[in-house]
Structure formats: structure tokens, C-alpha cells
Write a protein that binds this DNA or RNA. Structure first.
Length: 213
DNA sequence: TGAATGATTTACT
DNA sequence: GTAAATCATTCAA
């Protein structure tokens, strides 16, 4: 029942300072924690997507694009890349790899653990609903992640990840990036097999590979 | 200065 | 199945 203990330590920077696909795969099962003024919120990561600029056409850092928004991706691994889309949704990413490599991982869905009541209020849903955080925008809404979390260091902030057991996973192409040409087909979306907390996304974009390891 | 555009969600036909 | 909501960011001029 208790989820806090001395195992509740932020993952070290060394976790993030590895190839983005490696980190993306290992993110499944890790716990996202946000200590908000209203209370502690946490959830098990069940879906994530890797974005690997400058070569990845789907990445905001494609072509080495470097603006105020994308700047954090060029900095040290273990920081939060948080951005706003569609006029109403925030998205939360973790920066990986190394300084100068604009690689990040979009966290797309979590299984709610602590603070479900808070999430339910933020989302206007019952606290048992599997839709509390089964999408990148829904997750940020449920966790209260917004501009205030942009750029924070995940190794020493109120927003961080803690260790957890790996989950059996599969891969698929990434969601919502049809504009990215051949990069739209790359299987860089990782999700927990059989979890009811994975986003519904697109019915046609299900597993394209078998769980491995 | 202005127009276009989303790494989405939700509601509705 | 389609469309509206809604605005920070980006780029063209």
C-alpha cells in the first residue's frame, strides 16, 4: 500500500544519459511522481514514444531546429521538455542521451497509482476510470503538468521518475505524426502489453512486434 | 504584424 | 465516421 519509502528516489541522471530508444524501452514500468501543493500524484508508465532529432522528421528538433521551446532538448539529459499543442493540451517529455543531442521521449500514458482522487477532480471523471491518464494530454491534465514544469531537472524537482520493474512490451509506429514521411513508419512507440491504461490512439496501430525480454 | 499549424481530446452524426 | 475547441509557437514578410 505505502508507495513512499527509501526506494522513492528520483532516477539518477545516468538513467537518462543513454540512447533514446534504450531509455524509452526501459521507461515502461517506471513510476512518474508529481508532488503538487494539493498532494502527491503518481502513475506507472505504460506508453512512451522516442523522438530523435535532428534526423527524425517527426521530432521538434528535426534539422537541428533550436528555439526557445526546443532549447531544453539540447541540454543535459534528465530534464523535462514540456510543450503546448492544439490550443489546449500540454505534453510531457524526458530529455535523454547527452548534451547537444536533441533526443526526447514523450510519455503518452500511465496507470494511476497515488492521488487518483486528485486526478479524477482534474479530469472530471470517476477515480476508477481507466481514462484518467491514457493519453499524453490527459496525463498532463491529471498530473497538473504545465508551463511550470517546463525545463525542470527531473533528478531534483517535485516532478521525477522512480524505479520500477520492467513491463512486457510491444512496439508500433508513433501516433499523430503522419506529416513525417518515412519516419512515420518507424516503430518507436513502446507500450505495455495487455494494459488497459494504454491510450486508444488508433485502432490500426496495434502491436507490430512481439515482446522481447 | 499576421497567418498557419499542430507529438490531442471530446462530442456529435 | 467528422469536426470543433483554442492558442503558443513558428515562419514568412
Amino acid at each position: 500500500m505505502g508507495a513512499s519509502s527509501d526506494t522513492d528516489r528520483p532516477l539518477p541522471r545516468s538513467f537518462y544519459a543513454r540512447p533514446v530508444l534504450t531509455v524509452a524501452r526501459e521507461l515502461l514500468g517506471k513510476i512518474l511522481v508529481h508532488q503538487t501543493p494539493s498532494g502527491r500524484i503518481s502513475g506507472r508508465i505504460v506508453e512512451a514514444e522516442a523522438y530523435r532529432g535532428p534526423e527524425d522528421r517527426a521530432a521538434h528538433s528535426f534539422g537541428g531546429r533550436r528555439t526557445a521551446r526546443t532549447e531544453v532538448m539540447y541540454g543535459p539529459p534528465g530534464h523535462a521538455y514540456v510543450f503546448f499543442v492544439y490550443g489546449m493540451h500540454w505534453h510531457f517529455n524526458v530529455v535523454t542521451t547527452r548534451i547537444g543531442a536533441p533526443h526526447a521521449i514523450l510519455i503518452r500514458a500511465v496507470e494511476p497509482l497515488e492521488g487518483r482522487q486528485l486526478m479524477a477532480v482534474q479530469r472530471g471523471l470517476p477515480e476508477t476510470a481507466p481514462e484518467l491518464a491514457n493519453g499524453p494530454g490527459k496525463l498532463c491534465r491529471a498530473f497538473g503538468i504545465d508551463r511550470a514544469s517546463a525545463g525542470v531537472d527531473l533528478t531534483c524537482s517535485r516532478l521525477y521518475l522512480v524505479d520500477g520493474p520492467r513491463l512486457p512490451h510491444a512496439r508500433s509506429p508513433r501516433i499523430g505524426i503522419d506529416y513525417a514521411g518515412e519516419w512515420a513508419g518507424v516503430p518507436w512507440r513502446f507500450f505495455a502489453v495487455g494494459s488497459p491504461f494504454v491510450s486508444k490512439a488508433r485502432p490500426n496501430q496495434i502491436a507490430c512486434k512481439v515482446p522481447r525480454r
